[in-house]
Amino acid sequence: MILISKRSVNRAVLALSLIGSTHAFANDTTEQEKWDVSQPTGEVHTVKIDTTESTWSNLDVHPNGDTIIFDMLGDLYTMPISGGEATPLLVGYDWNMQATYSPDGKKLHF
């Protein structure tokens, strides 16, 4: 015998109604209104960030051991493993992260 409380039933009904609502909303977008991360809408402000440190970044070392790739605030950078100036690799409105080199070092995956 399975006992189900009224509270559990109410939570299940709420969860199902939310699923139905988001599904209806997702399918209500026309071709002209589709959102594109590379084309932001509204007011855009550019902020310059000059830093020598990063936290919560992902890092990988090139197979040759000379270079690293890391992400910071959704952009990808490379720099010598010995330190120095970081070179932007992918910057923009889209959020790129968790880059890793292929085993032969010829490709990046992110």
Rank of each mutant, 00 (worst) to 15 (best):
S8T: 11
S8L: 10
V9K: 08
V9R: 09
N10D: 06
R11K: 12
V13G: 09
L16D: 05
L18W: 11
L18Q: 05
I19W: 11
I19F: 14
T22D: 08
H23P: 00
N27E: 11
N27K: 03
T30L: 06
Q32D: 14
E33C: 01
E33I: 08
E33K: 00
K34L: 15
K34N: 09
W35Q: 03
W35Y: 10
D36Y: 06
S38Y: 04
P40F: 14
T41A: 10
T41Y: 12
G42T: 13
V44S: 04
V44G: 03
I49S: 03
T52S: 13
E53N: 02
S54L: 03
T55I: 14
W56V: 11
N58P: 03
V61M: 10
N64Q: 08
N64F: 07
D66M: 12
T67Q: 11
T67M: 11
I68D: 04
F70Q: 03
D71F: 05
D71T: 12
G74D: 09
G74C: 12
D75L: 01
L76G: 01
T78F: 07
M79R: 03
I81S: 04
S82Y: 01
G83M: 10
E85L: 11
E85W: 02
A86W: 14
T87P: 00
P88G: 12
L89K: 04
L90V: 13
L90I: 15
L90M: 07
L90F: 10
V91P: 00
G92C: 06
Y93C: 05
Y93F: 14
Y93K: 00
D94W: 07
W95C: 00
N96P: 02
M97Y: 15
T100H: 10
T100E: 12
S102T: 15
S102K: 01
S102C: 04
